[in-house]
Each structure stands twice: as structure tokens, then as C-alpha cells.
Computed example of a mutant assay.
Amino acid sequence: MNLVRAELRKLLGLPTAWIGLLLGTLLAPAITLLNAPYVRRSIASGTLTDLSDLGLQNLGVGLLGPMILGVVVVSGEYTSTGENVPGARQLTATLTAVPARISLLAAKTTALVLVVAVQAAVTTAAALTLVQVLHGAQVPVPAPARIVGVVLYWVLTALLAYAIALITRNGIVPLALLILNSTVVSVSFLLTKVTDLAAYLPDIAGARMFIRAADFPVEMAPVTAGLVMTAWVAALLAAGAVLFHRRDA
């Protein structure tokens, strides 16, 4: 628990982590608010009839937050500690204090999961409450299982970014790839147009835990979708842990 508390303080002490916290928490409610006039017109005109995913779809934008948090919890260790000693990194001091690398990774993982889970729960509650205030009873309140699915999706996305950062020992590469894939052009979604196997990629499968109305090429139950994404994350985390354990600091 002391290690977890230390990693929590370290994570929350990073300026970049606060960028992730603010973006992840504010983006989805902001998009929900900005889209409200269009949604009202679409409901009134009858062009938008399936409201089951309203409010939940916008939470995908907030994934920028967990991605940033997942990356910086690793990349912060590889940042130079000062201009006077350019070769020195935070990781050297961390491993001096905690030589047991697996214990260190376990504490980092726990701290990341706790922060992202709280962030996801707060953001989801804010976005869904805003939907109810803006659109009223005509929008159904999602079942608790779908809300749990959102929180799990955010946590697994953060762990995915964390695992890739562990493997690459770099913050820019995983963050650029994940942000481009989730905001600019979804390579995963494009691949579903080429092969049905792309439906089992982590980001596509994970969305099935709470999205119901989207056109997916393969039918997948929410529990199955969660297991698929968890398997991806577990495999990448295992690879990252092995590399972290064997590499020099």
C-alpha cells in the first residue's frame, strides 16, 4: 500500500497527468452540451430514432484522458531529471528505492487503475446526467451493466497505453498512435471493412461492452467483448513486464 500511495502521488504530481485528467473529464460533457441543439432537431424531425447510445457515444472522446495517463505513468520515469545531468532519469531513483521491479509495476498498475476508474465514473455520471437534463425522459437511462462497461473500457484503454509505453519505453509513439486511431482516423474501424477479424481488435471489441446501436461486422456479447479486450491488455502487459524486468535501467 505504501508503494501504491507513492505511485499515486508521483502520478498526480505530473503536469501532463493533470492534462489527461482535465481532458478526460471535461471533453465528453462538453461535446454532449455542444451537440444538444443538433440532437434536439434530429429527434424532433424523426431522423434520430435510436436513442439507446445517446450520451455513451460521446464518452469515446474522453478516452484521450486515460491514454495520456497510461503513457505518462511510464514515460515520466524515462524523463531526464535535470539539465545538469542529462543522462539521469527518474527511473534510476525509483529502482534505487524499489529494486523489486515487479512490485513496482504492480503498484504503478494499481495507481493507474484507481485514478482512471474514478475519472471514468465521474465523467460518465456527468455526461449521462447532462443528457437527462438536456433531453429529458425521451432518452432512456443506460442499464448499470453498460455504465460498468464504460468504466472498464476506460480502465483497459489506459492499461493498453501503459503496456505499449512499457514495451517502447517511449511516450510519444504510443500516444500518437492511440490518439490518431481514436480521433483522426480509426484504422481499427477501417480494417473491419476489410476483414471481420478486425472486430476482435481491442478498441473495437471493447466498445461492444456498452455500445449497442453501432454497425459491427461480428455479433459479440458485452461479456465476450470485455474478455477479448482484457486478453489483449493482459498479453501486452505481460510482454511489457518481461521487458521491463530484463532491460537495464
Rank of each mutant, 00 (worst) to 15 (best):
G70Y: 04
V71W: 02
V71E: 11
V72C: 03
V72Q: 07
V74C: 12
V74M: 13
S75N: 10
E77M: 14
Y78H: 13
Y78F: 10
Y78I: 05
S80E: 05
S80G: 12
S80W: 05
G82T: 05
G82H: 07
E83R: 13
P86Q: 11
P86V: 10
G87S: 08
A88V: 05
R89E: 04
Q90N: 12
L91Y: 01
L91M: 13
L91S: 11
T92R: 15
T92K: 15
A93R: 12
T94G: 13
T94F: 09
T94E: 14
L95A: 03
T96L: 12
T96W: 01
A97R: 15
V98E: 15
P99E: 09
P99G: 14
P99I: 15
P99M: 14
P99L: 15
A100F: 01
S103K: 15
L104R: 12
L105D: 07
A106S: 08
A106P: 09
K108A: 01
K108F: 00
K108L: 00
K108C: 02
T110A: 15
A111E: 01
L112Y: 04
V113S: 05
L114T: 00
V115M: 10
V116T: 02
A117G: 02
V118Y: 02
V118F: 03
V118H: 00
A120S: 05
A120W: 04
A120E: 01
A121H: 02
T123D: 03
T124V: 05
T124A: 15
A126Y: 02
A126T: 00
A126P: 01
A127N: 09
A127K: 05
A127E: 07
L128V: 00
T129G: 15
T129R: 13
L130Y: 05
L130F: 06
V131W: 04
V131H: 07
V131R: 08
V133E: 08
L134E: 06
H135K: 05
H135T: 00
G136A: 02
G136H: 08
A137R: 13
V139C: 04
V139H: 04
P140F: 11
V141M: 12
P142D: 03
P142I: 00
A143M: 06
A143T: 01
A143R: 14
